[in-house]
Each structure stands twice: as structure tokens, then as C-alpha cells.
Amino acid sequence: MDSLTLPSIFITLIVYIAAIKLAKRFPSPFTTPILTATAVIIVILSSLGISYYQYTPAKDWMTFMLGPATVALAVPMYKNQKIIKDKLKPAVWGLMIGTISTITSAVWLTKALGLSDRFQATSAVKAVTTPVAIEAAVLIGGNPPLAAAFVITAGIFGAVLGPIILSLVKITDPFSRGLGIGTVSHGIGTSQIMMEGPVQGAVSSLAMGAAAIITSIILPWIYPLIHF
């Protein structure tokens, strides 16, 4: 551990805690903690002359701790297991359709923009959590570092714009809102939709994990079919 690791972790935690307080005081999709904290941390690190390479050890430590922290997502799922069981069948169909649609739309959009095959393959995994996205991208010829960037970008946009879009199309059912956000915006979106209520958070947590499993299974089969 070098001399910048602990200060970088400390800065990140302080900024994120402040971002959470800001979101609670001024609740809005545009005060999503991950969005405001990311922007502030980038500004701070740039002003201090700390490169991403120097920040990486701190990032690795915090990423490692995300594993145990993720277990906490099981708590709202357990507390809302009855409603999840009652709507499990339509939820499975929604997950399948949502996952396939996300992969297909990403590949077709990047193809329409004239981007490279590797770029198209990388975009296909943008909706799942980072560890799964990195490994899945390798299977279809994508770029792992770029896949991680896509995942973070998709998560932030989903957290900020997802609830707004769902409200605009008059989707108010807590179960449906959680399912939609968890399917396309993984952990970042889940952290935001969880603020709406326990049902949204529980369903989004379940959808996030299920979407990652579905993607890892079907991606090697579906990608050759949609990439032509």
C-alpha cells in the first residue's frame, strides 16, 4: 500500500457520504450520489495531480470490499420474498425480454454509428455488473477495460434517467419499477431505486443478479445472431 492509497480511500468515502447527504436534502435523479460523487472525486483528483493509475490501489481495496457489502442486498429481498414469489413468473419473462432487448439495442446502435466490431461486442455487456461484464466481453471479443467504463456509464444514466422515464410512461408499480432498473442499470441503478422503497430495492437487487446470470449464459449464443 503506497502513501496515496489511504488518503484516496478517505477522500472517496468523505465525498460519497457528503453526496448521500446532498441527495437526502435535495432528492432528485440529478443528485444521485454516484453521479455527484464521481464528478467531485474527478475534480479533486485532477486538482491534486493524482492520476487514475495512482488512484487504482485505493479503487482495488474499495472494490474488494464491495463483495461482502453486496450480501446486504439479500436483506430487502428476504423481507419482500412473498411479493417476489407471487410475481416470479412474469418477472422471469420480463428479465429475459429486457436482457435480450438491452443486448440487441446496444449492438445495433453501435453498428448504426459505424463503430468497430470490438466496440459493438463491448457495448453488449453494458447492462450487467462489472465483474460479469469484463469476463463476458472477453468471450465475444470485446475490450474489458472499455466494458467496465460502459457499465459505469450505463449505471449512472440508468440511475439518473431511469426513474424519470418510468414515471413519464406511467409505470408506477413498485415491483415493475424495481425490475426495470435492476435489469438495465445493475448496482448503481439499484442503489438509486432503493431510495423509492423496499419493494423497488428488493426486486432491483434480484433483477440485477438474474440479468447477470442470463447475460453470461445467452450472450455467446445470441451475439453472433444479432451481429451481422
Rank of each mutant, 00 (worst) to 15 (best):
L22Q: 00
L22M: 06
A23I: 04
A23L: 03
K24G: 10
K24T: 06
K24C: 12
F26G: 05
S28Q: 11
S28R: 04
S28L: 09
P29V: 09
P29M: 04
P29Q: 06
F30R: 02
F30Q: 03
F30W: 15
T31P: 05
T31Y: 13
T32A: 14
P33V: 04
P33D: 08
P33E: 04
I34D: 03
I34K: 04
I34R: 03
I34Q: 06
I34E: 07
L35P: 09
T36G: 13
T36F: 09
T36N: 12
T36H: 12
T36Y: 02
T36W: 11
A37K: 05
A37I: 04
T38M: 10
T38V: 09
T38K: 06
A39M: 12
A39V: 14
A39Y: 02
A39G: 07
V40T: 10
V40C: 14
V40Y: 08
I41C: 12
I41G: 01
I41M: 13
I42H: 00
I42Q: 01
V43R: 00
V43F: 02
V43E: 01
V43P: 11
I44H: 00
I44M: 01
I44C: 00
L45H: 05
L45D: 04
S46D: 10
S47G: 09
L48G: 08
L48V: 00
G49C: 08
G49K: 11
G49H: 02
I50P: 08
I50L: 03
S51D: 05
S51Q: 07
S51F: 05
Y52E: 09
Y52T: 15
Y52V: 07
Y52W: 13
Y52S: 14
Y53W: 12
Q54E: 15
Q54Y: 13
Q54V: 08
Y55N: 12
Y55G: 15
T56N: 11
T56H: 08
